[in-house]
Write a protein that binds this DNA or RNA. Structure first.
Lengths: 155, 155
DNA sequence: GTCAGTTAATATGGAAACCATATCATCTCC
DNA sequence: GGAGATGATATGGTTTCCATATTAACTGAC
């Protein structure tokens, strides 16, 4: 890592501090949104993973979420029972099922995030196109770094 | 909200997408770090809140974390027993206790995040001072927006 | 100064969740 | 064809959650 100046190093530390705060605040927001939907944190996290990655098998979802397969069975039982997800037979492997988030329920989640989404639109409106491109690139690289770090921890 | 162009609106959506991915990846990383420390998600989240906010009473910590006071008692029991936090008498209110994260254990957490921290330093080194200032400001405003949204959801 | 009302933290116990292990059906490869 | 592996779930013991109650302490009105 090659910082060009002490100012830049200090700024990097401030960026990392701000990132930690973002992570914390969004985790707390997610917890409240989940509570409003009467979902346990672990259930809501798994639902978010399904919304992000698309349909997955319970084993793959468990691995992604860092959960035991038996735990995932319980989580999916609750999500299915509450109408947030469905389990369907896999067409190619009769052992397997495919789990999908219920698309018609997405609006309920969307509505609870409306405040945050509106605030983000307002914030983004203050930046130029060039600035937003820089910000997006930074966030993409940060997400990739987070993913890589997680993979390294589970090896 | 007043976007100056369609390009800017589209970019805002990409920024929001990227932010969701960052939130998800950091949540998964936190889960794995917590697992390495043999801490339940809820325990690790509370420890992180103590590290971020400094000493707090159990009631204030429960409110911040969106947890029931009785749940917090159990969380603090586990954190105390495992040596991650201490409960001390409040000097001014004999009913109250003050919970502190154990400073000597901070290094263990720090070491598990070393990969991510190093990656963030590398990423930041690619940006100019001006760009890092923009990024930091954006993250600060995003954290504030997240906090405000959470407060609105709990009213 | 007294006392009713409120607050802070914890105790209790029933319900819910977690997960190590086992089970069964299915798939793969030799 | 069959041994070994895999995917998902069942089981049951343990752990966690939390509604409610309890106790000690604080506050403010009278």
């Amino acid at each position: 890592m090659s910082f060009k100046s002490t100012v830049q190093r200090r700024l990097a530390n401030r960026v990392k501090d701000a990132l930690r705060d973002v992570s914390l605040q969004l985790a707390l927001l997610n917890h409240q949104v989940g509570a409003r939907l009467k979902l346990r944190d672990v259930d809501f996290d798994c639902l978010n993973l399904l919304n992000q990655h698309g349909p997955l098998g319970p084993g793959a979802l468990a691995k992604l979420a860092g959960l035991h397969p038996a735990t995932m069975t319980g989580v999916l039982d609750r999500l299915e029972k509450a109408g947030w997800a469905t389990r369907d037979r896999d067409r190619e492997d009769r052992r397997a099922v495919v789990v999908r988030a219920a698309p018609e329920r997405g609006r309920e989640i969307f509505e609870l995030y409306a405040g945050m989404n509106g605030s983000m639109d307002d914030i983004c409106a203050d930046y130029t196109v060039e600035q937003l491109e820089i910000i997006e690139e930074f966030l993409r690289r940060t997400a990739a770094a987070g993913h890589d770090s997680t993979v390294k921890l589970t090896d």
